[in-house]
Amino acid sequence: MNPLSLDLNDLYLFAQVVECHGFTAAGDLLGIPKSRISRRISQLEASLGVRLLQRTSRRLSLTDAGQELYLHCRAMVAEAQAGAEAVRKRLSEPSGQVRVSLPIAITDIVLADLLPRFMLQYPKVQLRIQATNRQVDLIEENFDIVVRGVTGSLESSSLVQVKLCTATWCLFASPAYLAQIGLVESIDRLPELDLLLYASINEATPLLRLIGPDGEAIGIPVRARLQSDNTLVLKQAVLAGTGIASLPLYACANELKSGTLRVVLPEWRPKEGQLTVLFPTRRGLIPAVRALVDFLKVELPALVN
């Protein structure tokens, strides 16, 4: 887009001179010396190569070119005022579009219940949801917020990180698999069993990392029959009776109630995932984004524990 050849301030000054019927009145209204306004209008005429105003000691009138320009200037000022008012309204109540990136499991299992309630509570907010497990660039991809499970601090200090809640993880197995392998009373049996691990496929030597009853953390080399960073893949595999899976509790709540999954070694936990919301800055956070962040902080903990 080519830059404007005219100073928009000069167009605004021109419109004020016309509406105030003179340079003196316009200067008094705007708090600008009459001489400065006169000089700016003269420069505007020079830039356009046409006279806009006929000046006499008693009267100021528009030329034909001035009349045509004034109509456009008046529309320009009206649009600018409307834009400013729209921004003020946007900042006074949650409204407008919010772009969000969420983990797949959180979107499918948890937020499918929460997001409709948020939308009913804030009818002027439009949500744009991306469900993905990949790492996204919040700035480059133009997201307002990103929700992720994290285990440590952020690498990028430019992002704001706010904890939403802690998600409890457990070891799960189907009744059919437990009937096949017998009672699992100790972690010593785990290396001989089929494990379904939540881990990157690039992790060459899979370890089942567990947190014990006293908070001690250990890593057990296991036979990973399935290794994936997608909780839904692991869940379907454990339901089919293929092994013991490491999964978040919220992802298996319905299956626990129905009895299609059972917790194995309940005193040992694979991990406690911190669900965190990331956004670029606290300053200038629009009400729609703030409303969604606050909503998740209040509503999410009850669904993931």
Rank of each mutant, 00 (worst) to 15 (best):
K235L: 13
L178K: 05
P280H: 11
L197C: 11
Q43D: 14
Q121R: 10
E45I: 02
S258W: 03
G215Q: 03
S35N: 13
P206Q: 14
R128T: 12
P191M: 14
E93C: 07
R283Y: 07
D188A: 15
G96S: 03
L114K: 04
A291H: 02
V146E: 08
V146F: 11
L292E: 02
V100Y: 00
W268V: 02
P3K: 00
L190M: 10
W169Y: 11
A199K: 15
L196T: 04
S92Y: 01
S158I: 07
A82W: 03
A176Y: 08
V293I: 15
I32N: 09
Q236W: 06
A78K: 12
L48P: 00
L111H: 00
A167S: 12
S42R: 14
A176I: 07
S61D: 14
I201Q: 14
L11R: 01
L111N: 01
K89S: 06
E299D: 12
V147I: 15
Y198P: 04
T107S: 14
L226Q: 13
V77Y: 00
V264K: 01
L127S: 03
C170L: 06
L29M: 10
V184L: 05
I218S: 14
V277Y: 02
L6Y: 02
R282P: 04
V136L: 08
D28Y: 14
R39E: 11
P248K: 09
L303H: 11
M1C: 03
L48G: 01
D108M: 06
L278W: 12
W169G: 00
Y70E: 02
A245S: 07
L127V: 04
Q121M: 15
R51V: 07
Q16D: 11
R209P: 04
R59Q: 06
I106S: 04
Q16R: 15
A15T: 14
L275A: 10
D194H: 15
S258M: 04
L210Y: 01
S92L: 07
F172G: 01
R55G: 03
L210V: 05
L300V: 12
D113H: 13
A46K: 13
F279I: 04
S35F: 11
A217V: 13
E267I: 09
L196R: 02
D188N: 12
K34W: 05
L256V: 07
